[in-house]
Design a protein around this nucleic acid. Structure first.
Lengths: 241, 241
DNA sequence: TTCGCGATTATGTATAGACATTATCGCAAC
DNA sequence: GTTGCGATAATGTCTATACATAATCGCGAA
């Protein structure tokens, strides 16, 4: 019944990618009803078990909400929201009525080291664009960002001056991600970091480490340090199955 | 074919619970090979699809590792995992092969103050059970937990000695929550906290504040402080709109 | 001894169908 | 109008089967 898959992803993955893409692109906003299982069956010409498993997985990941009889709808953004929103400083500043600036304080291209290769799953020696950015609101430093961008996945980053948008915002618009890993740590500011953020040495800081992949290809790693007395992560969660 | 389920969980959940219990209790240590799918089929008298879905789900959650031909084994705990995702110290300790203890260092019943009333949305003066708990693994303090439990919502907490399970675990089993709010901060340990956690004064700590509601009724507030050099929050997310 | 290759075995993905569960819709009775 | 109830429609769970894929095992040849 199925054509021979030569360079063809598994159906499960293809359906999942399609739905995720529609949600990510904004074509399907939160609350939008996703086609019923039998509609997807017809569209992809597969059995209900297959689309059921896809939708169940998406529901377990909190991307959609399923209700008997009512169908499946795109979930309201909840848990991850906080971590992600903090990412967009310009938006946060605008909402708080502050003036936002950023400054690229370092830029270079380097081969990834052994530890980096381990973290990202890339072969050692892969070329990465390394950027350090200071985010400032109303002349007060809010965060220091150290970022690696995989030039194999995003070659155009090499020629980008990052004049209007900081690297994170620029990337988000260019390269939609499909997977991310977040780590949140508490660290004491060393003297260098303290100077950058205009805080006292030893002040507790939140360090958010974030790695993103697009369909298995590593995109970027960001390590963002926030002064602990100026920032917190806030999230609202609903229980997962 | 199946007996009528009166108070009988779905098979999928039962198999899953059984396996998780074996892992949690330490009966199956990391590396231990889980029965093959056809063995579980025979044991539970069900089809392979059913056990396959259970094991796939456990694998997706990182509890087990699956390899073709080799079978399914209990996963190695990856360093300091998922404090946020699985907020169960006993489970984490069991997986890491550590001995877990907890100690209630303070217990009282108090009326909520103005600030607390603000945070929880309760009327001032509501009676709360106040507990302070120290979580210890292999004689090393891992976290200090300050918790308020709403006695109006969970009156039986008053008579509970919290002998076998710490308050968080006990509550989770008794009162399923429908909404939660999380705040993550970085704070410098003051001298009291430093003494409790056996760290140096000033060490950066992660402070996780968590409030939960059940259908609009406030249940509990927990404020958990982790030494920053021993813990991190790990999360794996998929994109949201 | 070692290398290569085929058989074996366990998981990965998918199908087609069945029955259970539950929320909603619409009609009928009050 | 409102209430109650049955039909309906969607997801939830499960079966039995099939073939694909990948890793390992063991045998035979170099």
């Amino acid at each position: 019944m199925r054509e021979d898959p030569v360079g063809m992803k598994h159906l499960h993955q293809r359906i999942r990618d399609d739905i995720e893409a529609k949600i990510m692109s904004g074509e399907w906003v939160p609350g939008h009803r996703i086609p019923f299982e039998h509609e997807l069956m017809a569209e992809y010409g597969c059995s209900r078990m297959t689309v059921n498993k896809v939708l169940s997985t998406l529901a377990a990941n909190g991307l959609v909400t399923r209700r008997r009889r009512a169908g499946t709808v795109v979930a309201e953004p909840s848990s991850q929201q906080a971590v992600l929103q903090i990412q967009d400083f310009a938006l946060e500043a605008a909402r708080a009525g502050l003036e936002y600036r950023f400054k690229i304080v370092h830029r270079s291209i380097e081969s990834i080291d052994a530890a980096g290769a381990q973290r990202t799953g890339l072969p050692a020696g892969t070329e990465m664009l390394c950027l350090s950015t200071l985010h400032v609101m109303d002349d007060v430093p809010q965060a220091f960002e150290q970022r690696l961008i995989n030039l194999a996945t995003v070659p155009e980053a090499d020629r980008e001056p990052f004049k209007d948008d900081p690297p994170g915002t620029w990337l988000l618009r260019r390269v939609p991600w499909t997977d991310a890993e977040h780590i949140v740590r508490a660290v004491n500011a060393d003297s260098t970091m303290a100077k950058r953020l205009q805080i006292q040495t030893g002040t507790a800081c939140l360090m958010l480490e974030r790695r993103t992949w697009q369909a298995g290809a590593f995109v970027t790693e960001a390590r963002i340090t926030y002064p602990g007395d100026r920032h917190q992560l806030v999230g609202r969660f609903s229980p997962v199955a």
